[in-house]
Amino acid sequence: MAVLTIENVSKSFRDVSRGETIAALHEVSCTIGDQEFVAILGPSGCGKSTLLNILAGFDAPSHGRVLVDGRPIARPGPDRGVVFQEYALFPWLTVQQNIEFGLRGRAADRSATARRYVELVGLRGFEHRYPKELSGGMRQRVSLARVLAVDPAVLLMDEPFAALDALTRQLMQRELLEIWARTRKTVVFVTHSIDEALTLADRLYIMSARPGRILEVIDIDLPRPRDLAAPQVNDLRGRINGLIEGEVRRAFMERAQALDG
């Protein structure tokens, strides 16, 4: 059981080198229900990763607050597992040891649990490899297994498949959906790929260019696995494209003006 409540969250950073304050998020509010798969979609630099970092507890909001099941988030914790785009595996640990990292209890139990998750992400036979010996897709599987092993209520995924090639990405998306169907976590998935969001999510939050606001919320009531060529999907894609394209153009113009000024 995990409900995420985001209330009027704003975040600004101090850019020390330029001596100005940058607003990354502006009054973002939303509620993400238990076991929902939500995608946050927006142009790059729109603050979607900032929002995820606040949910993870890595950053604190400048204004507003974030609650998990009614309790404010103060720090990172194993109730909210994060899957990073850069995998963030511990390079000095093997696959098995990476997955065991967050586990407590007796060594034998830890080892058995880790082995279960090695199986779940299809890495049997690679337990004793180091991350440097694995492909990008395999590394991201380890990262996913490491987080799932501590059994978080919420899965926060920060463009996890962005660095993978197209085929691997599709495969990973399919496997993530299978795992989600089995484990039923609440998932917050940040992406800049419209198709990825359409493939995965129950609901999309479309964010504006910086400072990030929620422009629109789109529910996707289609059964999975989804056919991305289906007419309903095409309609949605067209609508989202229009929204995001405008934002990308606006962000570009603003940046160009800032450089001129």
Partner: peptide
């Protein structure tokens, strides 16, 4: 790498432990 410290914290590792384990 700060991201490794973040990963450890998100997995529930305490600060003292992070010094030795990360």
């Amino acid at each position: 790498p700060p991201i490794l410290v973040r990963a450890a914290r998100m997995l529930g590792t305490g600060s003292g432990e992070i010094l030795f384990r990360v």
